[in-house]
């Protein structure tokens, strides 16, 4: 343990309202602390710069999975374990369930939360590409009220998010139409080992076909840019095309412009680019399988 523990605070507000009041009392001074699977690692390494936190782990207002005809709504504290064990999630949003099952091992999945994963804003996180493909929306709450925003575009730069300092992510909503039976889904995480690896590339894609043509496609990738990337141009040039060599080439050409992978201690820019293109090809070919 390299942190100087006496310098850290962790409050335990009695309710969500109290938590929001604490947030509002001095915006930016207090930050939420959920399952701790990212923050505790930083603390241990002596790299957790922020010192004042409040725990939200015990706030039942932030838990639970609700289903309506149009949406599945997940409390921000939905753990990876809870997410995967929900029948509807497994049936309609399998990419998110696979992402959850490939994030750490069971002990991590019991503590890691979807809201925490979003707020931690790591470009290597496993769930954001799936969330983007599913057209997820976030509910942000504050003492001032609540608002829904699209998740796509939420991360604006490395570790930067489109939310106010007094706001908290409270729910994540997935439109069920985004993943109906006529959508084919493809998710692949490339890590260094089979279990509990941090991704080197994470690919999520979905497409709807009609008459042998791609009517609509969505593609998102992790670990290939400072934030999760929504490959909108790549997806849009696929519209109205059949899967063939030209289509694959054109899509790969677009993707090259949309991602900016780097060298780091886990992999190389070269590898990330090549494998991204390979996965794109495999995704497109999978539409025909």
């Amino acid at each position: 343990m390299r942190a100087y523990l006496p310098a850290y605070e962790l409050q335990r507000p009695a309710s969500l309202d109290e938590a929001l009041r604490l947030l509002a009392s001095a915006p930016g001074e207090w930050r939420p602390f959920a399952g701790g699977t990212d923050l505790m690692v930083l603390l241990e390494a002596g790299k957790l710069e922020h010192r004042k936190f409040f725990s939200i782990w015990h706030l039942d207002e932030l838990r639970g999975i609700e289903e309506t005809i149009e949406h599945i709504t997940l409390g921000a504290l939905t753990t990876y374990t809870e997410l995967q064990s929900n029948e509807t999630m497994r049936r309609e949003f399998p990419m998110l369930c696979v992402a959850a099952s490939e994030t750490g091992a069971i002990a991590i999945q019991n503590r890691g939360t979807l809201g925490g994963n979003i707020a931690n804003a790591s470009p290597a996180a496993d769930s954001p590409p799936a969330l983007i493909v599913y057209g997820a929306e976030l509910e942000l709450v504050s003492a001032r009220g609540a608002r829904w925003i699209a998740y796509e575009g939420f991360h604006t730069a490395y570790k930067q998010m489109r939310m106010e300092p007094d706001e908290l992510i409270s729910r994540i909503r997935l439109p069920r139409a985004s993943a109906g039976d006529n959508w084919k889904q493809y998710y692949r995480k490339v890590g260094t080992r089979k279990a509990q690896a941090i991704s080197k590339i994470c690919f999520a894609g979905a497409a709807r076909l009609g008459d042998g043509q791609i009517e609509e496609a969505r593609i998102s990738m992790g670990s290939v840019a400072p934030t999760v990337v929504s490959c909108t141009k790549t997806a849009s040039i696929l519209r109205g095309r059949r899967v063939n060599k030209e289509t694959i080439g054109a899509a790969q050409g677009e993707m090259k412009k949309e991602i900016v992978p780097i060298d780091d201690l886990r992999s190389t820019a070269d590898y990330r680019l090549q494998v991204s293109l390979n996965l794109l090809e495999d995704f497109l070919l999978s539409l025909e399988r």
């Binding site: 690692v41 390494a45 091992a105 260094t192 080992r193 089979k194 279990a195 509990q196 690896a197 941090i198 201690l265 886990r266």
Partner: peptide
């Protein structure tokens, strides 16, 4: 120099 980034095989590998 972390177990997260220096990878040894798990049960799955």
């Amino acid at each position: 120099n972390q177990m997260t980034n220096y990878i040894i095989p798990t049960t799955a590998d």
